[in-house]
Design a protein around this nucleic acid. Sequence first.
DNA 1: CAATTGCATGAATTATTTTCATATATGCTT
DNA 2: AAGCATATATGAAAATAATTCATGCAATTG
Lengths: 304, 304
Amino acid sequence: MLALKHLRLIEAINDCGSITSAARRLFLTQSALSHQLVALETYYGVNLFERARPLRLTAAGELLLALSRDIMPRIEAAKRDLARLVEDKQSGKLRIAVECHTCYDWLMPAMDAYRTNWPEVEMDLVGGFHTDPIALLAEDKADLVIVSETGKQKGVVFNPLFRYEMLALMATAHPLAAKSHLTARDFASDVLITYPAPDRLLDLIRRVLKPAGINPERRYAELTIAIVQLVASRKGLAALPAWAIPSYLERGYVVARTITRRGLWSGLYAAAREADAGRAFHKDFVTTLREQAFMNLPTIEPLA
Amino acid sequence: MLALKHLRLIEAINDCGSITSAARRLFLTQSALSHQLVALETYYGVNLFERARPLRLTAAGELLLALSRDIMPRIEAAKRDLARLVEDKQSGKLRIAVECHTCYDWLMPAMDAYRTNWPEVEMDLVGGFHTDPIALLAEDKADLVIVSETGKQKGVVFNPLFRYEMLALMATAHPLAAKSHLTARDFASDVLITYPAPDRLLDLIRRVLKPAGINPERRYAELTIAIVQLVASRKGLAALPAWAIPSYLERGYVVARTITRRGLWSGLYAAAREADAGRAFHKDFVTTLREQAFMNLPTIEPLA
DNA sequence: CAATTGCATGAATTATTTTCATATATGCTT
DNA sequence: AAGCATATATGAAAATAATTCATGCAATTG
């Protein structure tokens, strides 16, 4: 009766605090997880979670969580060993290209974590800006590309990583700081500071300002820290991922606000050549990216 | 992909040396196990067993077997802990009745093994001979009865333990020792030495001699050692479970022969009240009986 | 107190697992 | 070496199990 999926279920619900969000992380529906949990609880005749939000483990649940934390790493290690036994050891190579500038924040720790499990895989970062990073796969200049959109390109597989909220950044004393959330029109009368990227890669412009016909004055900066500095100096507004902001907010020169009432959410995906995507060291890299992101970036959400 | 059933599969095949016999132990068909194994091997792209009889683990198989031996005991322990957390701790009580005299040989070590996992369960042996041991369950004089036949009694659940061969025992110099196997007629002209039990409980009589209309002169002994002594003293023939014999054969005064060409095989079952049979400490006792039997009795076979 | 969000649940659907019926080895015995 | 007994492999059918869909119900929030 007890299966590995049940252990994963318990870990996910415990981490996420709700069945709904755990379902997104496990790429299943809320209903499926609810059925699984109820079945397990019925079988053993105990509740594993107290049904209060956020869901909290009972003693019985803690017991299974402890089991999971004990054995799951051993199982993952064995699967890696098995894959290493089978695959051609030489060919483990991961040239990684990143579309989004801020991504390095979480990519570096993820690469470190991965290296301990796959020391023989050679990792490299593909530098420079590329208008069509996906093309790097076909050109054999990259093996894995992190992008903000899925697409249907033959021979290329997209794996969802996580979704995150884009927050508007403004100087502490800015008049818009009084609002709980900003709308498209709020951006009309101020300078917008962005990375020097095409508009189609800037979610705020593509999904909020352009549909509203708003086209603010622009200013560009290469580095996140420079963007924040310009905002603090009252040179304009910016939009950055929620997980890139906390360290800057601390200083008190800038504040962050939700964009539109429901928030502006974007997703990140790992793209790879179909031929590579099936290989164990590849799949494990994507899994590690996801795990490490959820571990290090508190504000992100699973991406269905 | 890798599931606990796969680990159990690998352990079973490794222990049994063949898929067919592993299938009996896991209460599945040979086909089901073959499909499972092929699927697993295909998924990882390695053979886990060399296809020569007996099936031998490859390096990849060894890796998974090591994983299994590492984590399965932890999982079983966690399940026990969970059951203990849930069940009424006081009521763990196992009064065990045994129909077959020779059973004590393997029952004792099994009870010892069980006690280490369930120290709080109170175990007792119901002594004396009973014409209808199953009735002890309804009379609440026993909680678990080990019998050689299943039956359809309402409120009683039968769990198969294992099957074993009954061998004919005769003095070394006995003329029948020249034969590779004995038939019903071979028993006609000699005394048959048995336990003092009703004929319906003696497989040799019920299933071989009675159908052939053969009714040999009888002599009775309470203890296995006494039966062997009488046989060695050329007082007659006996039939004993194959697993009870090896220690006596060593001395060289008696020899064992198969009964009928295909051998005379019997089964053992654990019977319990339906209400008890579902409880964790009960189920685990039956599992332990089975495991310990297979560990200690080399000649037995799984029982479908 | 309406609106929102999250969990539970029965029925329908989809996917997986097992069995059945054979085909295909692999030995062993004569 | 042929024939017999025993084992594994495999495709198709049957049986189970897992997942989704649609929706109800409860708790929480503005």
